[in-house]
Computed example of a mutant assay.
Amino acid sequence: MTAPSEQASGGPVSGALCLPQPAADQFAYHVRMSAVFAVAGQTEESASEAVLAWAILMSQWPGAEASAAEIGAELIDQRVASLSDRARSSALNRARGLALDIEAHFVMVGRQEEASMYADVADQLEHAVDALVPKS
């Protein structure tokens, strides 16, 4: 995925964000499930889904972190979400476990592209979590 995306003519489309279909499907799924769990009051499950969605976005769009930080600087003080090392480690472990479970599922059903994406995401989760909030 690149932002801006490329038009058929080869020129950039300002403001467009394009994901390969499998990544877009999984990203949408995790964003939706994060919201479902949040509405249900299941914050740990919501957090795991949100961390995976963020990691998928970061793995597909190298500019995600900079873009989010720029917008975040206008909207909130990002230090409000600083975490203890214990909370960070717990969130990372839950998200990694979920990513590996989903990878195993996709291997089992023969969907190698999705399985490979989750293996990559699992490897990148520590960086994704570090990009979310500063270490305390």
Rank of each mutant, 00 (worst) to 15 (best):
L100V: 09
L98V: 07
V36Y: 01
S67C: 06
E126V: 01
W61A: 15
E114D: 14
P22M: 08
Y118Q: 06
S67P: 00
T2H: 06
A3D: 09
V109C: 08
A131R: 00
I56D: 02
A95D: 01
A55G: 00
W54K: 11
M58T: 03
A68T: 10
S90T: 15
V51S: 01
F106A: 05
A16K: 02
R79F: 07
P12F: 09
S9I: 05
S59L: 03
I76D: 01
G110V: 05
L52H: 00
A81R: 11
G15T: 00
P62F: 13
A91M: 15
G63S: 13
M33A: 02
P20E: 03
A81P: 03
S67V: 08
D77I: 07
H30P: 00
L98A: 08
V121L: 06
Q26V: 02
I102N: 06
A119Y: 10
S59V: 01
P4V: 00
S5K: 06
E74H: 10
A23K: 03
A69P: 07
E49D: 10
D25K: 10
Q124C: 08
A38H: 05
A91I: 12
A47C: 12
A38T: 05
Q124V: 01
E65S: 10
F37M: 12
A53G: 06
A40N: 03
W54T: 13
E103P: 02
K135T: 14
Q124K: 11
L57G: 03
K135Q: 14
V109Q: 01
V129E: 02
E49H: 11
V13P: 05
S89P: 00
A55M: 09
R88T: 04
V107M: 08
S48Q: 08
G97S: 01
P134C: 12
R32S: 11
G63M: 06
P20A: 11
A16E: 14
P134Q: 13
Q78K: 14
R32K: 13
E114S: 14
F106H: 08
L17D: 00
R88Q: 06
